[in-house]
Computed example of a mutant assay.
Amino acid sequence: MGLGAPEIILILAAVLLLFGGKKIPEMMKGLGKGMKDFKDAQNGHVTEPAPAPVVTEVKE
């Protein structure tokens, strides 16, 4: 028993409603970067993570 077209469409619609159209590309970019880092780590190509950005503006 697998997922058919109606189920996949329903799942995609639910994800779109939950996260919105602007957040989904950011999530996919993060997912792709995570998969690339995972594969690189499996192959022994570990790179140092980029330093965290420095925040200079404080909102009150």
Rank of each mutant, 00 (worst) to 15 (best):
G44W: 01
V46Q: 07
A13F: 10
E60N: 15
P49K: 03
E48S: 15
D37T: 14
M1T: 13
F38V: 10
L10D: 15
L31W: 04
V15H: 02
V58S: 11
Q42N: 03
I8G: 12
G21V: 07
G20V: 07
E60S: 11
G34D: 05
P53Y: 03
V55G: 08
V54N: 08
N43Y: 07
D40A: 15
G44T: 02
M35T: 03
T47P: 00
I24S: 01
A52E: 10
N43M: 09
V58R: 12
I24D: 00
D40C: 11
A13I: 11
P51W: 00
F19E: 05
H45F: 08
A5R: 09
P25L: 02
A41G: 12
L10H: 04
G21F: 04
G21W: 00
G44C: 06
G21T: 01
K36T: 06
E7R: 05
L31G: 13
K39H: 01
M1P: 05
P6C: 02
A50M: 14
K23G: 00
V58E: 15
K23M: 12
D37H: 06
D40P: 03
E57S: 05
A5C: 03
Q42Y: 02
A14Q: 11
G20F: 00
P25F: 05
V15F: 01
P51I: 04
K33G: 15
L16G: 05
N43S: 10
V46E: 04
A52T: 04
I9R: 08
G4I: 00
P25K: 00
L18W: 01
A41W: 07
K39A: 09
A13E: 14
A14L: 08
G32V: 12
G21L: 11
G30D: 07
V46P: 02
G21D: 00
E48A: 15
H45N: 13
V54Y: 01
I24F: 04
M35L: 08
V15S: 08
L16S: 05
N43L: 13
A52F: 02
A41S: 14
G34Y: 04
P51T: 01
V46A: 07
V15G: 02
K29F: 04
E7C: 03
T47L: 02
I8N: 08
M28C: 14
L17T: 05
L10K: 14
V55H: 13
M28D: 09
G20N: 04
M28F: 08
A50G: 14
L18E: 07
G2Y: 07
P49F: 06
L10C: 15
Q42V: 15
G30M: 08
V46K: 01
L17P: 03
P53L: 00
V58Y: 13
D37F: 13
